[in-house]
């Protein structure tokens, strides 16, 4: 009962904040709404017995990634023109996009509710997971079954660091006007 109540409250917060992200004019408000969405999603992960994912969601998403976003928004110092931005090159775009979005909701909803997911059940039931510890199981899998993807992820992060520095550093070549 408590779980259902928690789910309903959290999902309402998530949907409201996600709509806030999309329809806010000011990007800094969008960022704050997005942080709230991610923290509420972490609560849902706890309900799903994925405590490690919940912790990482708060630390990496709501912490690190959103700090970069807020930092860039502050750094760019957008003027009023950019924030309003209602020149409307495509006047029908907004209603058409919302109609398409509603269609997407219906389609995904039909697929998700009608499909019967039958697969081989794994060994990690919530009882087993609570006994061993979710974080310990994640660590064990990362360094046994998924050790190669784990190493490739480190290479990806390295490439991202190099790419970000190369892209954002001061341009030496002057752009010809």
């Amino acid at each position: 009962m408590l779980e259902s109540l928690m789910f309903i409250i959290m999902s309402l917060i998530i949907i409201a904040c996600a709509i806030g992200v999309v329809f806010q004019k000011n990007p800094i408000y969008s960022a704050v709404f997005l942080i709230q969405t991610m923290v509420s999603l972490a609560v849902l992960y706890v309900l799903l017995h994925a405590q490690f994912v919940a912790a990482v969601q708060v630390m990496v998403y709501a912490g690190a990634i959103m700090v970069i976003f807020v930092f860039v928004i502050m750094l760019l110092n957008l003027n009023k023109d950019d924030l309003e931005g209602d020149r409307n090159k495509l006047p029908m775009q907004k209603p058409a996009a919302i109609i398409l979005g509603l269609m997407l909701v219906v389609m995904i909803g039909v697929i998700m509710t009608r499909t019967i997911y039958q697969g081989a059940q794994g060994e990690y039931t919530p009882e087993v997971m609570d006994q061993i510890g979710n974080t310990q199981l994640v660590g064990k899998m990362l360094f046994t079954k998924y050790v190669l993807p784990f190493e490739i992820a480190s290479i990806l992060l390295f490439a991202a660091i190099v790419g970000a520095i190369v892209l954002a550093k001061k341009q030496i070549i002057k752009e010809e006007k």
Binding site: A18, V22, G101, I111
Partner: peptide, 10 residues
Amino acid sequence: GILFSIGAVG
């Protein structure tokens, strides 16, 4: 699904 659609609309 709802969250994904809101993101796509955004």
